[in-house]
Amino acid sequence: MNDVEREVVILNSAWEMINGMVNWAMFVKHDITEPTNMMFETSAHRQLFIILLADFLSEVQAFKGKEIPLGLTAPPRNARPSDLTFLFHLRQGIANPMLGKDTSALAKVVEEFSTWLEGEFVAKGVNLSSIDLIVDIEVSRLRYLKMCGDIAKHNLARLATNVKHLQRLLARAGHEVSEQNAYIAVEGFFDWFHDDIFIYHSSQIAEFLNNIRWAIFDYLGPEFSRSHHFTGEISGLALYNYRIPDAIEQPIAHAMYWDLMNRCRVGPWVHRFVVSDSFKSLY
């Protein structure tokens, strides 16, 4: 894929993933723009959100030695933690913009989310009662979110990597535990971090994601204006088409360009909102 096609794939994929997480089926609908918070519709929606978020925060990898799909590039060996998420590809897509000129607003919100994810906090008095341990755990937001997403998605038989992460977190806190005890403690870790800390963080995460979606929309505004045009009318229904850039030749990029422009035509599903500082001051 060339640079234009790759940018289309990245922006459309990011918008699609965010649509899956930040929408009025997932959260209780409101029209508030002043400082507020976001509440999940149900506990099932909360669990679905953390699973989808963990996918967004996972590295896009090649399968069995093949190239990374859709022309995406691999992060460097010395990558920062957020480079091992889809945010890396957003950075790559806007570093040399093809569909527009000004990516400063998009770059800003991507960096803000990346920096927040990479930040660490201390969860005090984490009660892992199944192994008779109460401990202060220091962890990055990115690490605990990915662990909770994996735990929500998989059964114990597929949690070996997260068990190792939990062992390292506990060792860092001065408590060496066996692999079996770490497996036993996984449920307690999930209950503490998912049912408490993640719920607190979820409003701010939704704001970050929504800001990225709106920044993509704003960035693509001039391209949409150039590309979109009406072609006629049938039974009172206006027909339209898009002037697809000549550089877009690959069928999947062609299809994603249409998807991307249609997303611009409709606009983001959730209005711009700001979360209250009371949901940003802890952890």
Rank of each mutant, 00 (worst) to 15 (best):
M1C: 08
D3K: 14
E5M: 09
E7H: 03
V8S: 02
I10H: 02
I10P: 00
W15I: 09
E16Q: 11
E16R: 14
N19I: 05
M21T: 01
V22W: 08
W24E: 05
A25T: 11
M26C: 07
F27D: 04
K29H: 12
H30I: 01
T33W: 11
E41N: 12
S43R: 14
S43V: 13
A44W: 13
R46M: 08
I50V: 15
I51A: 10
A54K: 09
D55A: 02
V60Y: 00
V60K: 05
F63S: 13
K64R: 15
G65S: 07
P69G: 02
G71L: 08
T73V: 09
A74K: 07
A74I: 01
N78Y: 02
N78I: 02
N78K: 07
A79I: 03
A79Y: 01
A79W: 04
R80I: 03
S82H: 00
S82R: 00
L87P: 00
F88D: 00
H89D: 03
H89Q: 06
R91C: 01
Q92V: 04
G93V: 01
I94N: 00
N96Y: 04
N96H: 09
M98F: 01
M98E: 08
S104P: 07
L106S: 02
K108L: 12
E111S: 15
E111D: 15
W116A: 03
E118C: 03
K124E: 10
G125C: 01
V126C: 06
S130A: 01
I131M: 00
L133C: 08
L133N: 02
L133I: 06
E138F: 05
S140G: 11
R143H: 05
D150R: 15
N155W: 14
L156F: 14
R158P: 06
L159R: 10
T161R: 10
T161H: 12
N162V: 03
V163L: 07
L166G: 03
L170C: 09
L170I: 10
L170D: 03
A171V: 09
A171G: 14
A173I: 09
A173V: 10
H175I: 07
E179H: 07
Q180I: 09
Q180D: 15
A182R: 05
I184E: 12
I184K: 12
A185C: 08
V186E: 10
E187F: 14
E187P: 06
F189T: 05
D191P: 04
W192H: 11
W192F: 15
D195K: 13
D195N: 13
I199Y: 10
Y200A: 13
I205W: 00
I205M: 08
L209S: 04
N210E: 00
N210I: 00
N211H: 04
R213I: 02
R213T: 08
A215V: 01
F217C: 10
Y219E: 06
P222R: 11
P222V: 12
F224Y: 15
F224C: 07
S227K: 07
H228K: 15
H229E: 15
H229M: 14
T231F: 15
I234Q: 14
G236T: 11
A238G: 14
N241Y: 12
I244T: 14
E249A: 11
P251L: 12
P251I: 08
Y257E: 03
Y257L: 05
L260H: 08
N262G: 02
V266I: 13
P268K: 05
H271P: 04
R272W: 04
V275A: 04
V275Y: 06
S276R: 08
D277P: 09
S278E: 13
S278Y: 12
K280Q: 08
S281P: 01
L282I: 02
